[in-house]
Computed example of a mutant assay.
Amino acid sequence: MPASAPASALTPPPAFAARIRTTAPSAVREILAVTARPGMISFAGGLPAPELFDTEGLRAAYDSAFARSARRALQYSTTEGSPELRAAVAARLDGQGLATTGDDLLITTGSQQGLGLITTALIEPGDTVLVENPTYLAALQGFELAGARVVPVPCDDRGILPDALAELVARERPKLLYTIPTFQNPTGRTLPAGRRAEIAAVAARLGLWLLEDDPYGELRYEGRALPRLASHPGAEDRTALLGSFSKVMAPGLRLGWLRAPAALLRGAVLAKQAADLHTSTVDQLAVAEYLRAVDLDAHVARVRDAYRIRRDALLAGLAGALPAGSTWNRPEGGMFVWARLPEGHDATALLRAAASRGVAFVPGAPFFAAAPDPRTLRLSFTTHTPEEIAEGLRRLAA
């Protein structure tokens, strides 16, 4: 048997792909590892409250899925998703004013996968993608992995400025606009109805795909629901809509859905076939059983009631917890409050001090595609009780 070659003679394997070498890790995921310490009160993660999960209803739904057909539940399935679940999602969307059939939908492994599938179907390296500034961190990460050129759209405290968008589209010729118009992550802001119609008109007039991410839309605590971008004239044939069961049912299910025009949906199906063949059959059938047997709207109403109280507890205590001169918004729903510290403060530096006192949040800078504001921070209010929120704010004040 030949002797092993000396280490100096070994040739290392080829390098990782440039997309992996140059893409930064998610700042939120890194912070969540720190906040897992016992006793930490975390305003960092956008996590649903686990005590509000309908564990009994979900357990019964899995039992029912197995009782109906264990063989089917444990077998491979179609890429598009189970007909029962697609029909149930379509019925919910239809009831919310967006005409939808099961054929318009693809079931995804969380809405995050839907974002990746649309990116794969549309974006070539070097293509321009427009985003809100700031925006969802994992979207920035996904577009970077795809080799896209990411350009921020001018926004104010209510979201995208349509005139600025039109000017940017005419100048940059982007392929896609990614937006979270309702209870945006990280800012919690909501795009007004008039601006939604204007954005749809810009997309139709200038030729632009729209990717509307809506994981938080059902978590509304006040005000009236607004039509989705996909329902506006001019946007019907160019809008992909992402939704998720993570925030209204349980994130561990890893179930979401994608609604898109037929041609784009076919592209997403091809991308999913290459990614994972299909989303978990048993989880799909269990959620379809849950939607058949349980009033999801009633469950969501209970969740909303709890989160409304928690939002108000956070808002009530911020004046005493943040430095004088800080500002913050009052979101009508969702999971996040967006704050800005006074001149001369740095939220990242503050996080290190806060974590040493047993409280955490997410600095806002990583959410910006350009010109990050180091004074900003995102605070999530859903995970803790009002009493825990009050204690967390006391720690933050210290």
Results as ranks from 00 to 15, higher is better:
Y62D: 08
D63H: 11
D63I: 07
F183L: 05
H345R: 15
D373I: 00
P83K: 04
I118H: 03
Q96T: 06
Y62N: 04
L137V: 13
A91Y: 01
E332Q: 14
R220A: 13
G252D: 13
R292E: 12
Y216A: 10
E124A: 14
T22P: 01
G114L: 08
A365D: 07
I309G: 09
A73I: 05
P13N: 11
V269D: 13
I309D: 15
V150Y: 04
Y307V: 07
L314V: 15
Y307S: 01
A60N: 10
R92V: 05
L206G: 06
G217V: 14
S111A: 07
A204W: 02
T239D: 11
A9P: 03
G95P: 03
D312R: 14
L264K: 11
V300A: 06
G126S: 02
L229T: 09
V300H: 07
R220N: 12
A288P: 09
E212M: 00
A60I: 04
T179V: 15
L208I: 03
E222V: 15
V150T: 13
L264M: 13
A225Y: 15
L315S: 05
R238H: 03
A7N: 07
W338K: 02
L296I: 05
A225C: 10
Y136T: 15
E388Q: 15
A203W: 14
M249G: 02
